Computed example of a mutant assay.
Amino acid sequence: MFLVVLAVLLIAVVVSPLGQGQAAVGTYKTAALSTGFTAGYSTMDALAALAFGIIVVNAIKQLGITQPTAIAKHTVLAGTLAAGLMGVIYALLALLGRNALGVLARADNGGVILSNVAHQYFGTAGNVLLAVIVVIACLKTAIGLITAFGDTAKEMFPHVPYQGVIAVATLVPMFFCQRRLDRLLSVSTPVLMALYPFAIVLILVGLLSVMFRQHRWLFNLSLLFTAVPALLDGLNATGLQASWCISILKIGQFLPGFSAGLGWTVPALVGAVLGILCDQLSSRKNNSQ
């Protein structure tokens, strides 16, 4: 349903462009890749992938596939299809925003852009269409998040009533949803800047670990070396001007990419290399014994 209603808007964008766009400004002109990369944190796709993984695996098991290798194969196929579709959607959304420049004024966030573009194409009906898109998009995400949260909580704390966990996970967001998107982003961005590096490193290390018999050091050192730079990136994103904050952030100036919010990349790579070496040494020691 989400793809169908979203396609109505995106097809209009492709068939009848609003304009030819304008030149990029600010960091999107001078550092488009790093700016787009860190701005993508707000989608929470990587965090959601870690949370939704249990749903995908359980769904595959319910189809009668029980062998671990077969589950892994079908998970990769499902993930590849999802990544391809998301790539198409994001590319078309980028085209939507680009073509709107010059016809519509620049906006503070994507929600305003979508609202203006939908209204420009379809008038009042466009507002209704966008409302349907947002409701279904949020509903499908909420169902996935609440289900994943409930399943994980049930596994970790089997004595806690599942219905109670679901009730809390459903009611708490009702408080936050009363805030404007700008306000939510101002709060969530620093948190995401701190958490997202862990998610990215965890995913990449998880994929890399299949190449090694032992990978305890790989996980530990990669995440350990990511920790401090990630926390510095999160602190930097708060925009605090307190003296103690400025003093702490001076540490980050020694990290490549820190100004772009990517100060964690080099330390994470160093940690991964050291982890691989330690795992290799540990493996050789065990073999010799």
Score class of each variant (00 low, 15 high):
V134S: 04
M211A: 15
N99W: 01
P197Y: 00
V117Q: 03
W217E: 01
G144R: 00
L145R: 03
V160Y: 09
F157P: 07
L218S: 06
L145N: 07
Y162L: 15
A131N: 12
R216I: 11
A131G: 15
L104K: 11
I133T: 00
A107I: 07
I146S: 09
P161N: 02
D108F: 03
A105I: 09
I136A: 08
I200T: 13
N99D: 13
L171G: 04
L202E: 02
Y121W: 02
G111K: 11
R183Y: 06
V134I: 15
I143T: 12
L207K: 06
A194N: 06
L129D: 02
L181N: 09
A199Y: 08
V210R: 09
V128E: 05
V187R: 11
A199E: 04
C177I: 14
L139Y: 11
T152W: 09
M193A: 14
L202H: 06
Y121G: 09
A148V: 00
D108Y: 01
V201M: 06
T141I: 13
A167R: 03
A142L: 12
V205H: 03
V172I: 15
A167F: 12
A131W: 07
T170V: 14
C177Y: 02
G164R: 05
A153S: 09
Y196C: 14
F212E: 01
I200N: 10
V112K: 12
K154H: 12
H215D: 05
L185F: 11
L104R: 13
G110M: 10
A118G: 08
L185E: 05
L207S: 09
